[in-house]
Simulated assay, not measured.
Amino acid sequence: MTIQDKEHTRDPLWSALWKGWRCRCPNCGSGPMLTGYLKVRDTCPVCREALHHHRADDGPAYLTILIVGHIMAPMLHVVFTTFRPDPLTLFTIFAVGCVALSLYLLPRLKGVVVAFQWVRGMHGFDPHP
């Protein structure tokens, strides 16, 4: 039994979510899940797991907005009350920060949502319908 097999049998949910965070196939963990920035492959090029069943839709965008808002809003308040920077400087820094954090999180959260659907057997991922 390999380390990956032990990890998969021990806790398949967290293992699959970590693989999804890395934008890897939730089944094998080595094949890329995405073809571009957000386009999910129809099948994994390594293990041939079908990934076209996913229904991520607006879930990753919602989670990205939720996380970015909860990180940046308190930071904006602290920076404003502590340092009182010029409004244009404050806007520029936080606008760039919000965009950069959103672009970083969006594909990773899409991978997590697809991996969650895969491990729970949702939307056609179930091997025993």
Results as ranks from 00 to 15, higher is better:
Gly69His: 05
Leu66Ala: 12
Ile67Met: 13
Gly59Ser: 09
Ile65Asn: 10
His77Ser: 11
Met75Cys: 06
Phe80Trp: 14
Glu49Lys: 11
Ala95Val: 07
Ala56Ile: 11
His52Met: 09
Ile93Ala: 01
Thr89Gly: 08
Phe94Pro: 05
Arg84Ala: 10
Ala61Asn: 13
Ile67Pro: 03
Ile93Phe: 02
His54Ile: 07
Met72Lys: 04
Asp86Ala: 12
Thr81Asp: 07
Pro87Ser: 06
Leu51Asn: 09
Phe91Pro: 02
Phe83Cys: 11
Ala95Asn: 15
Asp58Gln: 13
Phe91Leu: 15
Asp86Thr: 04
Thr81Trp: 01
Arg84Ile: 10
His53Ser: 07
His54Lys: 08
Gly69Asp: 04
Arg55Gln: 15
Arg84Leu: 02
Ile93Tyr: 00
Asp86Gly: 12
Arg55Met: 13
His53Met: 12
Ala56Gln: 04
Ile67Lys: 09
Asp57Pro: 13
Thr81Ser: 05
Leu63Trp: 07
Tyr62Ile: 15
Phe94Met: 10
Ile67Trp: 03
Leu88Arg: 08
Leu63Met: 15
Pro60Ala: 14
His77Met: 13
Leu88Glu: 03
Phe91Asp: 00
Ile65Val: 15
Gly59Ile: 10
Thr92Ala: 13
Phe91Ile: 09
Leu90Cys: 05
Thr64Leu: 15
Thr81Phe: 05
Asp57Leu: 15
Met72Ile: 08
Thr82Ile: 05
Met75Asn: 04
Pro74Tyr: 06
Asp57Asn: 12
Val79Asn: 05
Ala95Met: 14
Phe91Tyr: 10
Val79Asp: 04
Val68His: 01
Ile65Tyr: 09
Val78Phe: 01
Glu49Thr: 12
Tyr62Asn: 04
Phe91Lys: 05
Pro85Leu: 05
Gly59Pro: 06
Leu51Asp: 12
His53Phe: 14
Leu88Val: 14
Gly69Ile: 10
Ile67His: 02
Ile71Ser: 01
Pro87Asn: 03
Asp57Phe: 14
Phe80Cys: 01
Leu63His: 02
Leu63Cys: 14
Ile93Asn: 00
Thr92Asn: 07
Leu90Gln: 04
His52Gly: 12
Val78His: 02
Ile93Glu: 00
Val96Gln: 01
Met75Lys: 00
Thr89Gln: 13
Thr82Ala: 03
Glu49Arg: 07
Phe80Met: 13
Asp58Pro: 04
